[in-house]
Lab assay of single mutants.
Amino acid sequence: MAAGGDHGSPDSYRSPLASRYASPEMCFVFSDRYKFRTWRQLWLWLAEAEQTLGLPITDEQIQEMKSNLENIDFKMAAEEEKRLRHDVMAHVHTFGHCCPKAAGIIHLGATSCYVGDNTDLIILRNALDLLLPKLARVISRLADFAKERASLPTLGFTHFQPAQLTTVGKRCCLWIQDLCMDLQNLKRVRDDLRFRGVKGTTGTQASFLQLFEGDDHKVEQLDKMVTEKAGFKRAFIITGQTYTRKVDIEVLSVLASLGASVHKICTDIRLLANLKEMEEPFEKQQIGSSAMPYKRNPMRSERCCSLARHLMTLVMDPLQTASVQWFERTLDDSANRRICLAEAFLTADTILNTLQNISEGLVVYPKVIERRIRQELPFMATENIIMAMVKAGGSRQDCHEKIRVLSQQAASVVKQEGGDNDLIERIQVDAYFSPIHSQLDHLLDPSSFTGRASQQVQRFLEEEVYPLLKPYESVMKVKAELCL
């Protein structure tokens, strides 16, 4: 049975990233139509530049190519590739079939990587351009969430054990800070992308030097003109047959890092959902379990974690691919890159769409948070109580021993009897502590235990987050809708 299948058929496997999760716009960027249309555009740009620099290419040939950029006979191309065992030459023939007058000058002087690699770089750039505003929107939604809850005390956790208090907004800023680093890295790697350009079979530009009869300047002009037509500021000066596969490492490393950030955020949300302090959106008709109707599973956060793990592992592909590119190139890269580049971007696209949807509907339960604080705060307040007693004339050592005994009794009630923490009640009825009984409410005010959390939130948002989001103001209103 021949390899390949009808990918629109229910009898043929289709990647869930495309069929179930990723956005239509990201799927289109990695589609065959987008790819092969870009090949034709690159052939047109090459012909236009070659004509401008004096090669015998007519206006009629150029116009014929322009008129057929979208006229792609995919069936013919597939048949040609089956016959020739070469995808680029299959599309040269297919393009030439609908451009008979231009057929002889299509791909003039070029090698397969002229269309293959340059198209990949265009796709990487455009895919990054799709991700950047999506990530900015996630940051914006979380920034709104953090600002609104900047002063809401909550129990902090280290080692997932109760620690000092923080605020809900401050905790959210930990998430935002990681995503801001990801946004900066995505922008950097996007701006650092260079075009492969017009380089020939081993990167020496020998074929173009021959076409222009040894004119170095025209060869350099050709490279520059096509690079500018493709919208790049610069091209690699040095290439082998391909652009260095280190570029793929750079791009997928940034995406993998984004995956790590999203995994951490969504894990926190899942843990908070278990504590009943916070939940992701839950639709009115949504079913959490087929057997347990009360369940409210954090399905979206779980999906993000599941896909983020996949995204983090994909960076190993370009690392290994770059390491086995012998001399000017081997074909070890080809099949692998067809999979890992598309999957990385479709996965990143999915987790950003999902995280935006989550961040637009996060639900906080202040009463649950308050109750958990009441359970733990008495123990945390013991040092403040000791200091207040010393100020009232008591002995630190005597007070410490009193607190120690009462704390152990209260802990026994919590752990052995399943009761509430009654340390404060014990202190309130103990005559030894009568000098500070009137101060206990103040000493137990949760806001006095959150330090500068709310001020940190305000400063972080104003100095770091809002300036970073400013270039994306025009796209901030787009909502994230999930079908599944």
Rank of each mutant, 00 (worst) to 15 (best):
S15V: 15
R303F: 00
V219F: 05
L469M: 09
L186S: 09
A143C: 12
L311C: 01
A480T: 15
V115N: 01
G393P: 02
P24H: 08
L341R: 06
I57G: 01
S448P: 10
E79D: 13
L165V: 09
G156D: 00
S23H: 09
R371L: 00
R270C: 00
Q286D: 00
T321L: 10
D216E: 09
M65T: 04
L222W: 02
R194L: 07
K75E: 13
L271K: 01
A260P: 04
F157T: 02
K264G: 06
L252E: 03
P162R: 03
Q241S: 02
G418W: 05
C27D: 15
E463C: 07
L444G: 05
L346D: 00
F157M: 08
Q439F: 05
I339C: 12
V368T: 11
W43I: 01
I424C: 14
D182K: 06
V315L: 14
R296W: 05
L377A: 03
V168D: 04
V390C: 10
E302G: 04
Q408W: 06
A206T: 09
H7C: 09
Q397W: 03
L346C: 09
L311G: 02
G116C: 12
R338K: 06
Q221R: 12
L222P: 03
E48L: 04
K82E: 13
E64K: 07
P24N: 15
L121C: 12
E48P: 04
I72Y: 11
E343F: 03
V29G: 03
F195D: 00
Q456R: 04
E481W: 07
K233F: 10
H107R: 01
I386G: 03
L319C: 00
T52N: 10
A90E: 00
G156S: 12
I373L: 13
K170W: 01
A3H: 15
D445Y: 09
E48G: 04
Q325K: 02
D349S: 11
S151C: 11
A18T: 15
L355F: 14
R374P: 03
R20T: 01
Y114N: 03
M181L: 11
A22D: 06
Q205M: 14
V465S: 03
I436R: 04
K218G: 09
T239C: 14
D73W: 06
G203C: 00
A308M: 05
S261R: 04
E464M: 05
A103E: 08
R149K: 11
H86I: 02
R194C: 09
G8C: 15
C483D: 14
D420L: 02
M225S: 10
C305N: 07
L174F: 15
T347L: 12
E60Y: 10
R141Y: 14
V247D: 07
E280F: 00
K82M: 13
